[in-house]
Design a binder for these strands. Structure first.
Length: 425
RNA sequence: GUGGGUGUAGCUCAAUUGGCAGAGCACUGGGUUGUGGCCCCAGCGGCCGCGGGUUCAAAUCCCGUCACUCACCCCA
């Protein structure tokens, strides 16, 4: 039996990696402009880190983690999200001693043992950013403006930013009780799942896709009517910053995030192009988490972008040629083939992507290959050209051909490419 | 964990009532001895997911199983 990858784990193939690299480079560029530095944390952490930060009762911790026991009997877990690890690193390395305000980003794989479907995998990748140490709404705005700018740079203008406030631990509790009471009065008309949710996490009922539950929820109290004065002021200042920066958003008072540690601002970037998955990115404020993990009492806010989901949206909307070889060199006859091999090697050492045919082939076959790999130009050199000292340089897009001297050929080709005579983007 | 759909060539998919396993694309070669994309011809390529059963005969019917996929739950 042929060995295949594990369920929910995917190869990112050569035809996709150029796009991944482009997305990653754009993200790094945007983050750098906003003053964020990269941090790389381990993929494995002590299980306790996640159960204490994400929340014991969340689905992620209770049934989706890849957990194993090391030889000393300690539970270790493949990270299901990035924030916990970054917070741990912030505390452990005393990064706040330098400056409590730390702006960090990271890119890498996460692992959750869920049933795979469209836009959902067991190993998936996230682009994460965290801003530690600042409590004000300007930080919230900063991080939201940054992520929206990135989407803009990537050409994604049809996504919708949803924002909400979950309040602080104090006012959220008031609302939670209110909502629980509202739901229990109507529990007879709720679906089975929601009756359970109404007890342990009533906010989750907002996410239910059953029609009857949606109807009930549409009349439910809004958290925005219950948040305390401080939380309300924070939220309205955030909106002011966003408005002044030209950020478009919708206020979604039913937006709930799945992790326990969120407080106040939460946001999600949604799309209808990902099947049942509507979020391509999500984040929010988690002011209590650093202290909860025995660090200093500093606030924080961050987000995660689903890399696969992001790439899927881009693949859908723009087509772009990546990695076209600058030149294909066709040699005819043993002498020319040897020459071509040398030139190709020299060009590659100069950083120019050059290709050739390895076996002896006719010119037609070589031209066909040049076309198939998308070479921008082709050089043709046979016996006649070796004698005359002039090769034929063909532009594969325009079919223009001209002679090019074989003495100092490599420098000549480099000059042509650098001068933009060829077709560059 | 639960439900639906699909498993046939590298890819996308056909195969009538159970009767020789096919097409398009891709790949290789040729038509054109030195010029790519279009056209024509030929070639290469199959455990019909796997195991069992029914039958003279199974890709096709039955049972089981596995995989993929979409959806639920939940999330990026």
């Amino acid at each position: 039996m042929e060995i295949s990858a594990i369920k929910g784990f995917k190869d990112i193939l050569p035809r996709e990696t150029a796009l991944w690299q482009w997305v990653e480079a754009e993200a790094r560029g945007v983050f750098n402009a906003f003053g964020f530095k990269e941090i790389r944390t381990p993929l494995l952490e002590k299980t306790e880190l996640f159960s204490r930060s994400i929340g014991q009762d969340t689905d992620i911790v209770s049934k989706e983690m890849y957990t194993l026991t090391d030889s000393k009997g300690e539970g270790i877990t493949l990270r299901p999200e990035a924030t916990s690890s970054v917070v741990r690193a912030y505390i452990q390395n005393r990064l706040y001693q330098d400056n409590p305000v730390q702006k960090l980003y990271s890119i890498g794989p996460m692992f959750r043992h869920e049933r795979p479907q469209k836009g959902r995998f067991r190993q998936f990748h996230q682009i994460n950013a965290e801003l530690f140490g600042d409590p004000g709404p300007a930080s919230d705005a900063d991080i939201i403006i940054m992520i929206m700018h990135l989407f803009n740079v990537l050409g994604l203008n049809d996504v919708v930013l949803n924002i909400n406030s979950l309040g602080c631990p104090v006012c959220r509790t008031v609302f939670r009780d209110k909502l629980r009471a509202f739901l229990s009065e109507r529990s007879g008309r709720l679906c089975e799942d929601c009756r359970r949710r109404a007890e342990y996490n009533p906010l989750r009922v907002f996410d239910c896709k059953v029609e009857s539950c949606k109807e009930i929820v549409s009349d439910a109290p809004s958290i925005l009517d219950f948040i305390c004065d401080d939380c309300a002021r924070h939220f309205s200042l955030l909106r002011e910053y966003l408005d002044n920066s030209g950020i478009r958003y919708v206020i979604n008072h039913r937006l709930v995030r799945g992790l326990d540690y969120y407080s106040r601002t939460t946001f999600e970037i949604q799309t209808d192009r990902l099947g049942a998955q509507n979020a391509v990115a999500g984040g929010g404020r988690y002011d209590g988490l650093i202290k909860q993990l025995e660090g200093p009492d500093y606030p924080a806010i961050g987000f995660g972008i689903g890399f696969e989901r992001l790439v899927a949206l881009i693949e859908d909307s723009i087509k772009k040629d990546y990695n076209r070889p600058e030149i294909f060199m066709a040699g005819l006859g043993a002498d020319a083939e040897k020459k071509v091999f040398g030139w190709v090697t020299e060009l590659r050492r100069s950083g120019i992507s050059a290709e050739m045919e390895y076996g002896s082939k006719g010119l037609k076959a070589q031209m066909k290959k040049a076309d198939r790999i998308g070479a921008k130009r082709a050089l043709i050199v046979g016996e006649d050209e070796l004698v005359s000292g002039k090769g034929i340089l063909r532009d594969m897009d325009t079919k223009d051909q001209k002679e090019i001297g074989l003495d100092n050929l490599v420098q000549g080709i480099i000059n042509i490419i650098k001068n933009g005579t060829g077709h560059r983007e």
